[in-house]
Design a protein around this nucleic acid. Structure first.
Lengths: 236, 236
DNA sequence: TGCAGGGTTTAGATAAGTCTAATTCGCGAA
DNA sequence: TTCGCGAATTAGACTTATCTAAACCCTGCA
């Protein structure tokens, strides 16, 4: 069943789409209801601005709002979020695979374009790439029906035992600096590595093809991995 | 010499870019000075709207304005126009060549995206395509330094003598309908054809690979061709 | 139980881009 | 030379998205 005809007739402004995306992102980070101030922080605008925008989103039926408490996405709001996510992640994948972008640099370009590519173009990109299930950071890409593939089970690199070979599956991120750091370290989805040392203050040292890398704990915590054995299984 | 750093620091709104593009397009159609009403027509807004926008563009140094007379692009305005043209035409070329779009359908998608692709992305697209000199309609693409390749000499199909084989070089257009018409007729840049008949009221019948096509004169006038002999020369 | 402080909302202003209605300008015809 | 008409501009209002300042709500601590 497809609801694709809806989005382009919905005609949300890019700004509104950004609010929906932000609510989705913050919500995914744990909170059930998303607060005005959390959104203000995330979007770098003032609280009154958020407050008035939330009222508009409520009128449009995209969020449920409880005064002084916060908002949640309605079913329709959820679909909008998933559509933007699909655009964003497919753009990232395309830029990386077909236009030779570094996977740590695609975020900004995708952020601007995601609001302006048609669903038609998005679908063509998906097809050209063979309908990939994940983007270059390992984040799952909603399919054309907007259902989000369940990512397989992963564990955080920070919790891996020394000596166990693992394969990087996904890099969680908000800002670009962490991605840059990891890209420079040669750590990206698909890379096999092995923790060789965990220092007292959380510095994790891992062996990767081509050398060793030391990572601060807060960076290591962004890396999701699976045991190498398990990864091999999936290849086959 | 490159001036590329300028555009993205100029930070024009998409709307302003559309006005610049419109002035460029109307100017290319003959007029030296572009009138308020011509712009209002072209952009489908009212004259007062254009008037106030032209004042802003003048303040930004993008147009020279003579009250009650019209505007011309300044040197900087010209560069903006060429940058947008480069974005637009490379996008069209890319969508057609790499994402299997029909060359008659790419216009709208490119119109939306041209304001949001970075120069970086534009350059990567150009490189991926081998720095093409023309877009799918045969329109010249400004290079990275924003100089516009001189298109070779062409003649209008409407003026071609019966029996002379020619090759289509370029399709001039404003709306999409003519492009659709020609695409459906199988006439596009690169196709070889021969005029077999010109009827009293300007209906032009041409033989193309795969059959014959009759075209109204106003459509035939949009088609620029070169003698087949000349075209072969350039291939070699 | 009440109040202080922090988060939220309301009120009112601003900037961009658009509109309609009213005014002004410029130029060709009488 | 002047009149009148069409084109251009000015005036003022509306919408979207933003801000600051002020008022309001809620809750945890005394």
């Amino acid at each position: 069943m497809r609801f694709r005809w809806k989005r382009e007739s919905r005609m949300l402004s890019a700004v509104m789409e950004d609010y929906i995306k932000a609510i989705y992102a913050i919500r995914s980070d744990g909170q059930e209801r998303v607060s005005t101030s959390a959104l203000a922080d995330y979007l770098d605008v003032t609280a009154p601005t958020v407050s008035s925008m939330l009222k508009k989103l409520e009128e449009r039926g995209l969020v449920d709002r409880e005064e002084y408490k916060g908002v949640t996405l309605t079913e329709e709001g959820e679909l909008v979020a998933l559509e933007i996510l699909r655009h964003h992640r497919l753009l990232e994948a395309f830029l990386t695979e077909r236009l030779d972008y570094d996977w740590a640099d695609v975020h900004d370009e995708a952020d601007r374009l995601e609001h302006h590519v048609s669903d038609e173009l998005t679908d063509r990109i998906a097809e050209a790439l063979g309908n990939p299930g994940v983007d270059p950071h390992g984040d799952p890409i909603p399919d054309a029906d907007l259902s989000l593939p369940e990512p397989g089970d992963t564990i955080r690199l920070a919790t891996v035992a020394e000596g166990e070979p693992v394969v990087v599956r996904r890099i969680r991120h908000q800002g670009d600096e962490e991605l840059r750091y990891l890209a420079d370290a040669g750590i990206r989805p698909g890379v096999e590595l092995e923790v060789v040392d965990v220092a007292p203050f959380g510095m994790v040292t891992a062996e990767i093809p081509g050398g060793e890398q030391s990572l601060p704990e807060e960076i290591a915590r962004l890396i999701e991995v699976v045991p190498a054995a398990e990864a091999d299984e999936l290849e086959a």
